[in-house]
């Protein structure tokens, strides 16, 4: 036994909450995206832990798929960031409130 599952889950939770608070609090678009990456990483950690716990390779495959999706997401998101920056010369999310009701 390397470590109890509990501890791995605690680590993943803490990472997730860190990323989550980053998303909530930050106004810089890039930092918000970084927060999202952190949360995805924390999820991946749980997948890997679960794969090891049950000695099944599926969890690891999930992480791989997760990475691919993340890559796609980041590509689009960063393209949007560039686009938005072109429009307002800023990436403060507070400025992009044209959808305000």
């Amino acid at each position: 036994m390397i470590v109890p599952m509990e501890h791995l889950l605690v680590l993943a939770t803490l990472l997730f909450v860190l990323g989550f608070s980053c998303v909530l609090v930050r106004r810089n678009l890039i930092l918000i995206l970084i927060g999202v990456e952190i949360m995805i990483n924390a999820v991946g950690l749980v997948f890997i832990g679960a794969a090891a716990l049950w000695q099944q390779v599926d969890g690891q495959i999930m992480v791989l798929l997760l990475m691919a999706i993340t890559a796609a997401e980041v590509a689009i998101a960063l393209a949007l960031v560039v686009h938005l920056h072109q429009r307002k010369q800023s990436i403060d999310v507070g400025l992009f409130d044209e959808m305000r009701g």
């Binding site: 599952m5 889950l9 832990g49 090891a52």
Partner: peptide, 13 residues
């Protein structure tokens, strides 16, 4: 994850 999950106390082999 930790409080209610029955597998949480198992060790990772």
């Amino acid at each position: 994850l930790i409080g209610l999950d029955p597998v949480a106390e198992q060790g990772i082999p």
